[in-house]
Every structure is written in C-alpha cells, then in structure tokens.
C-alpha cells in the first residue's frame, strides 16, 4: 500500500525556492534515507508533508489528500521527530514517551492498556527503560535523543518522518536506531529519515533519495544512488566506496579536486 505520494511539490522559504517539482512515492515497508548537502531541502520536504511549512502541489497520505485532513487525522498516519530537541519541562521519561499517545486519546480520557503497551514497547526498542522514572531534562544529549525517538515510536503511526535522528548518538546507539527503523520497515511500517552519515544510510536504508537544490537527483537502492560521480557532483567530495559481507561501505575521504 502507498503511504505517501507527492507530486509537483514546491515550497518557498521567504523568497528562496527550497523545493521544486518534487515527486515521490513511499510504500509500506520501506526505510528511505533522505540525503543531500546542507540546504538541499530535506527538512523542508518533511515539514511540507506534515503541513508545518506551506507548499504547493499534491500530498497524499494513505491514499487521501493531506490538505483535507485535520491535524489529528494526520497525526495518526505520520509521526515526526523534529531536528530541534525541545523538552520544556522536567517531566519523567515515561510520561514524555507517553505523550506520543496523545493523537489516539479522545479528550479528557486517560491512557488505557493499549497505550501503556505501546509506550513500554517504544521504550524497550530505544533502550531507555532504565531511566523511565528520571527527569527527561536531566539526561545527557544522546539519552534525550533516544527518549524523543521513543516518543515518536509510541505514536505508532504507519509512517515516521525523522529529521537527523542519529545526531548526537554514539556509534552503538546509531546502529541500534538504524536496526529499529529497519525493523519497523520489516513490520510493514515505513520510515523516511534525513541523514548526513552516508555510511549509515548506505548500509541500513532500503532506498535512498538524493536531494540537491530542492530537486530529487537520484532515487533508488543505495548502490545505484551513491556513485563516485554523484558524490563528487552533489556533495563535492571523493569517497571510498566498497563492499563487505554486510553491504555497501561508503566513507568520505577528501574534498573533490
């Protein structure tokens, strides 16, 4: 089933065109890495899908026009991990993760057994159960990041949009996160993640979408998208491209000549 379908999507920030004529279809069970240099329009693409940035063109979520959906309907189809990791008040980790259930709760009701199970499952996946009772504001940067990802997981939306989810995580937790996203895809959910780490993107994503100057310049399996020529033209770098038993290995080496 198609979870997300974009066609002729454009967006401006101020006077600058940030997205031009983007077309993209994401089906169930895909882990899509959205890659591209700074300012390519990755974050704006996610924000446009969520209705946080005004855009022109067609956005369909789960086969229905996003424009005609209420904020709550949209929230049951998509979860979002913003780049800014704000935690305004010193609430407990468990309660913070529990906020992810808000789109599923009718007003003035308390979370039920399904909600509690979803929260526990999300905390287990992100390995944050040990500090469930601690104040979220007192955690380290990486711990906070994991808690916020668990919050987005608890929303249990079919499509997750994550803006630089690996930023601030140690290598083990970066890989854990990639495994979690790949696992979600296996369960039939989909993830679109903006990534700067090409090594992680190459190894774990089922598909990469390369953005440059607001347009999609390549879309397909990592091996087809990450070629030496594209890394030179789009990123301006030369990189080591190789293979090992687990898949493609990409490692940036130097700026392109």
């Amino acid at each position: 089933m198609t979870l997300l379908s974009l066609s002729s999507l454009s967006a401006e920030l101020g006077r600058k065109t940030v997205l031009r004529d983007v077309a993209l279809t994401v089906n169930e069970g895909e882990f899509v890495g959205l890659i591209g240099p700074n300012g390519a329009g990755k974050s704006t693409l996610l924000r446009a899908v969520l209705g946080l940035t005004p855009s022109q063109g067609n956005i369909e979520l789960g086969g229905h026009a996003a424009a005609s959906m209420s904020a709550a309907q949209r929230a049951r189809l998509t979860s979002y991990l913003p780049q800014e990791r704000e935690i305004a008040w010193p609430v407990t980790v468990e309660r913070l993760v529990g906020l992810g259930r808000a789109p599923h709760l009718p007003p003035f009701t308390r979370p039920g057994a399904t909600d509690e199970a979803a929260v526990r499952d999300a905390m287990r996946r992100m390995d944050v159960e040990d500090f469930a009772a601690r104040r979220a504001t007192e955690l380290s940067g990486g711990e906070k990041a994991r808690v916020l990802i668990a919050r987005a997981l608890a929303q249990e939306a079919p499509l997750m949009l994550a803006d630089e989810p690996t930023a601030g995580l140690d290598p083990a937790h970066q890989i854990t996160l990639m495994r979690v996203f790949a696992g979600l895809a296996k369960e039939g959910r989909s993830v679109i993640a903006c990534l700067h780490d090409l090594g992680l993107a190459a190894r774990w994503c089922s598909r990469l979408v390369l953005l440059a100057n607001g347009s999609i310049v390549a879309d397909g399996p990592p091996r087809d998208v990450l070629t030496a020529a594209r890394l030179r033209d789009v990123y301006g770098i030369q990189a080591y491209l190789g293979e090992d038993g687990g898949g493609l290995v990409v490692h940036p080496l130097d700026l392109a000549e």
């Binding site: 924000r47 969520l50 209705g51 946080l52 209420s70 904020a71 709550a72 309907q73 949209r74 929230a75 049951r76 998509t78 979860s79 979002y80 991990l81 913003p82 800014e84 704000e86 935690i87 305004a88 008040w89 609430v91 913070l96 906020l99 992810g100 808000a102 789109p103 709760l105 007003p107 916020l148 919050r151 929303q155």
Partner: peptide, 23 residues
C-alpha cells in the same frame, strides 16, 4: 481548561505538538 492536553504535548515544542495533532 480545554488547553490541558495540548499544553502537555507542547512540552516537546510547537512543531512536534503540531505533528501530534495539536491545532
């Protein structure tokens, strides 16, 4: 009083709250 739950969700910032169905 109608703001009770939206204010909880706003703990995560206004973008996250909007993505979670808060108008």
């Amino acid at each position: 009083a109608m703001l009770a739950r939206p204010l909880d969700v706003l703990t995560l910032g206004s973008d996250a709250a909007a993505s979670m169905g808060v108008d």
